[in-house]
C-alpha cells in the first residue's frame, strides 16, 4: 500500500474530501503506471471470475469455491518451501494441486458418507487452512528458511493487490483467457448441463466431463486470485457478481455479461478507492463495492424487495378500489 501513498500523498487528506475526490476521478492516480497495472490485473480477474462464477452459483456450488479458496493456501506454502522463492507461477501450481486434492476429498466424503456437503466443506476448509498455518509457522521457526524473504506468503491469505506486477497480470491473462474461451466453446453444453443435467446426459453430454471442465476453470481463477484477494475472500469474486446479475437478467447470456461487467466495475472502483485512502486494502475494498452493488440490486432490482413491496401495495389498493 505504501507504494501508492507516494503517488497519492497529496490527495489523502481527510474523509471530508472523499466526495470531491470521488466525483472528479483523480487523473494523477488514474494515469499512474502502478495504478494501471493493478487495475488491469484486478479488472481482468474480476471479469473472468464474474462470468465463470455464474456456473458454480447456478449449479448450487457457491460454497465449494469458498472451501477450495481456503484449501489452496497450504499448496502455496509448500510450493514456496520447495522453490524457496515467491515465484508466482510455482505458487499458482501449488495452489492448484492443493485445491484439487481438497475438491477430490470433498467429493469423496460427501458422496460416500452420510455427512452432508455443508459439514464436509467446513471440515476440509478448516483442516486445509490449518495445515497452511502449520506450514507457515514451521517456515518462520526454521533456520533453513531464515534467509528467504517470506513476508509475501501472508499476502496469499488476505491478498495484496497493490503488489501486482506485470508478471502477475500476464499470469492472470494466461488463466483468464483460456477459461473464458473454454466457457465460450462449451457455452451450449454448460447451459443444458446446469439447467437439466439428466436431459443433457440423454443427448450425449457427459456429466463428469462437464464437472471437470467447471472445476478446471474455477480452480484456475481461484489460484490466480489468491495473490489479489487472498484465500479467504477469493470466493466472493465468483459468487457476488453472479448474485447481482441474477437480480437483473432472466437469460443466461445476460447474467454472464452483467456478472462480468459488475465484477470489472467493482474491481476498478475498489482499486481506485484503495489507492486514495491509506490502509484500505484493495481486495476487501473491491469486495465491499461488489457486495454493496449486490445488496442494492436485491433492493431495487425488477424482482427486488422494493418492487415486491410496491406490487403488494398496488394489489391492496386495487382491491380496496373494487
Amino acid at each position: 500500500m505504501y507504494l501508492f501513498n507516494l503517488f497519492t500523498a497529496s490527495k489523502i487528506i481527510d474523509i471530508g474530501s472523499f466526495q470531491l475526490a470521488f466525483l472528479s476521478l483523480d487523473m494523477d492516480i488514474l494515469s499512474s503506471y502502478v495504478f494501471m497495472v493493478v487495475c488491469a490485473g484486478t479488472m481482468i480477474l474480476a471479469a473472468a471470475a464474474g462470468a465463470i462464477g455464474t456456473i458454480s452459483v447456478l449449479k448450487g456450488q457457491s460454497l465449494i469455491g469458498d472451501a477450495i479458496g481456503h484449501s489452496a493456501y497450504p499448496g502455496v506454502v509448500i510450493a514456496f518451501m520447495i522453490g524457496m522463492a515467491l515465484d508466482p507461477l510455482k505458487l499458482f501450481i501449488g495452489a492448484i494441486i492443493s485445491g484439487a486434492i481438497a475438491f477430490a476429498l470433498i467429493q469423496l466424503i460427501s458422496r460416500h458418507s452420510k455427512l452432508n456437503l455443508d459439514a464436509t466443506l467446513a471440515i476440509i476448509l478448516s483442516s486445509f487452512f490449518g495445515l497452511g498455518m502449520v506450514l507457515k509457522s514451521y517456515i518462520q521457526g526454521h533456520e533453513a528458511f531464515a534467509h528467504v524473504s517470506q513476508g509475501g506468503l501472508k499476502n496469499y491469505i488476505f491478498g495484496q493487490a497493490a503488489y501486482i506486477k506485470n508478471a502477475d497480470v500476464y499470469l492472470i491473462l494466461a488463466v483468464a483467457i483460456p477459461s473464458i474461451l473454454i466457457f465460450i466453446i462449451f457455452y451450449k453444453e454448460f447451459k443444458v448441463f446446469i439447467f437439466d443435467e439428466t436431459y443433457a446426459k440423454s443427448i450425449g453430454i457427459k456429466s463428469n466431463f462437464m464437472y471437470a471442465l467447471m472445476l478446471v476453470i474455477t480452480m484456475g481463477l481461484i489460484a490466480t486470485g489468491l495473490k489479489v484477494v487472498g484465500a479467504i475472500l477469493i470466493s466472493s469474486f465468483l459468487i457476488v457478481p453472479a448474485i447481482t446479475a441474477m437480480q437483473w437478467a432472466q437469460q443466461f447470456n445476460r447474467v454472464i455479461l452483467i456478472a462480468s461487467l459488475t465484477g470489472m466495475f467493482s474491481a476498478f472502483l475498489g482499486t481506485y478507492i484503495s489507492s486514495i485512502y491509506p490502509g484500505m486494502s484493495t481486495g476487501p475494498s473491491i469486495i465491499l463495492v461488489m457486495s454493496l452493488i449486490a445488496f442494492l440490486s436485491m433492493l431495487i432490482g425488477p424482482r427486488g424487495i422494493l418492487a415486491k413491496y410496491f406490487r403488494r401495495r398496488k394489489f391492496i389498493n386495487d382491491k380496496s378500489n373494487v
Binding site: 457457491s62 460454497l63 469455491g65 459468487i239 448474485i243 491509506p278 490502509g279 475494498s285 457486495s291
Partner: peptide
C-alpha cells in the same frame, strides 16, 4: 427474500463483514 439461495446468502454476507473488518483494522 427468496432472491438468493441459502448457500449464496452465506457466501455474500461473510465476505462483506470480513472485508469491513479487515479494512477497519488496517485503517
Amino acid at each position: 427474500t427468496g432472491l438468493v439461495k441459502n448457500d449464496d446468502a452465506v457466501g455474500i454476507i461473510f465476505p462483506l463483514y470480513f472485508s469491513l473488518g479487515v479494512i477497519l483494522i488496517s485503517m
